[in-house]
Design a binder for these strands. Structure first.
Length: 379
DNA sequence: AACTCGGGGGC
DNA sequence: GCCCCAGAGTT
């Protein structure tokens, strides 16, 4: 039996019951595909359900503020997806009458929709015969055909797209594409797949030549940089605190955080206390002077008081590992002794979108009193 | 073409 | 620890 026929047969017998498979509405397909970019189904599913409940239609999402979208996205990572999601929702709702583009080429014009996502939506929602190429497809094709092209090289996507296109049965693009991905996710898994029960074990080039664990070839390795963050949880006379929006380019764009002091390396607790004290006592930037590149502005820093007490809130540094940055984070409580205009209540602060590592700390720190902190397990 | 962008799970 | 996950945008 030909490849696509066997694959689709396998798919119909093994596919998971996933919420976005109950519809072919482009809005829901689009939402699921954006969420699942570089994201496991198990991690994305609860977010999909939350979003559909909060925004039943693209018009509902378009009417919401970006901050609400980011808050719902909190913890899912790659936040540019959420920003582009919202921008596209507004574009579709306000410039396209609430209707998504009806073709691969049209979908490709939307923010956050690249080759893969445009092909996924076009094939699943409209039945357009365009092949998807994601991590699963690279793996399945590289193994089945014994393709040794480095999948991180520039020409790989074109090559694998052409191979997938020759296999794609016209009229069954939706099933074929989803079957390729489901097969990669459930059977042809990255590590130690159980080839003994694989429907292709009599014809898979990688299996027949003992190269299953060598394919696909991926050479590029991401280099990791270490960063050292000190977050200052200000506590003013009213028990309120200060949060800032990250507006600079880089990680966590448009999310919120506490006033941040980043250092070049690890700094002792004593030395850091001095740096924090100096931070609040630095003279105000003269009006009219532009803020130094990468430095917080005067308003963002809520200076104008001398800390009454500075306390390290957790003896162990919190290591937060991103794919390309390892963050070593310390949280400090800085008691202001006076009331600050810029400060907000803890309950109000929790409503903003935060990086999950900060949000998790807030939840734990504010659920305990200070005396419990050092005995609490905050890992 | 190389970099950047999160967070979690599997082994 | 390392790798991968229904990738896309920027430089």
């Amino acid at each position: 039996m030909e490849f696509s026929k066997s694959l689709i047969q396998w798919y119909l017998q093994n596919k998971r019951d996933l919420p976005w498979r109950k519809t072919i509405a482009p809005y829901q397909i689009w939402l699921s595909e954006i969420m699942l970019q570089q994201t496991r189904v198990a991690q994305g599913t609860p977010y999909f359900l939350k979003f559909i409940e909060a925004f039943p239609t693209v018009n509902d999402m378009a009417a919401a503020p970006e901050e609400q979208v980011l808050k719902l996205w909190q913890g899912l990572g790659y936040y540019s997806r959420a920003r582009n999601l919202h921008a596209t929702a507004k574009q579709v709702a306000f410039e396209m009458g609430g209707e998504f583009p009806d073709s691969y080429q049209g979908l490709l014009q939307l923010k956050g929709v690249g080759d893969y996502t445009a092909a996924a939506i076009a094939s699943i929602a409209y039945g357009e015969p365009v092949p998807v190429v994601d991590g699963n497809v690279y793996r399945v094709l590289a193994r089945y055909f014994g393709i040794e092209t480095d999948i991180s090289s520039s020409g790989a996507k074109k090559q694998f797209t052409e191979v997938a296109a020759t296999l794609l049965p016209k009229g069954r693009a939706s099933e074929f594409n989803q079957a390729m991905m489901e097969f990669g996710a459930l059977q042809c898994v990255p590590k130690n797949p159980d080839c003994s029960i694989c429907i292709f074990n009599a014809e898979c080039a990688a299996f027949l030549t003992g190269r299953v664990n060598q394919l696909p070839v991926k050479l590029k390795k991401t280099k990791v940089t270490n960063r050292f963050f000190n977050y200052l949880i200000i506590k003013d006379a009213a028990g309120h605190t200060v949060v800032n929006k990250r507006t600079a380019k880089g990680i966590w764009h448009n999310l919120y955080e506490f006033p941040l002091i980043e250092t070049e390396g690890e700094v002792s607790e004593e030395k850091m206390s001095e740096i924090i004290m100096r931070y609040f006592n630095e003279p105000t930037r003269p009006s009219g002077t532009p803020p130094e590149e990468g430095k917080a502005t005067h308003a963002e820093r809520a200076v104008g008081f001398t800390p009454k007490r500075i306390t390290l809130l957790h003896p162990e540094r919190i290591l937060h590992k991103l794919s390309h940055q390892h963050l070593s984070i310390r949280f400090w409580e800085v008691e202001a002794g006076v009331a600050l205009d810029k400060a907000i209540s803890r309950g109000e602060a929790m409503k903003y979108p935060f990086p999950i590592v900060i949000y998790n700390f807030m939840e734990r720190y504010w659920a305990l009193n200070a005396n419990d902190l050092f005995s609490a397990n905050l890992d």
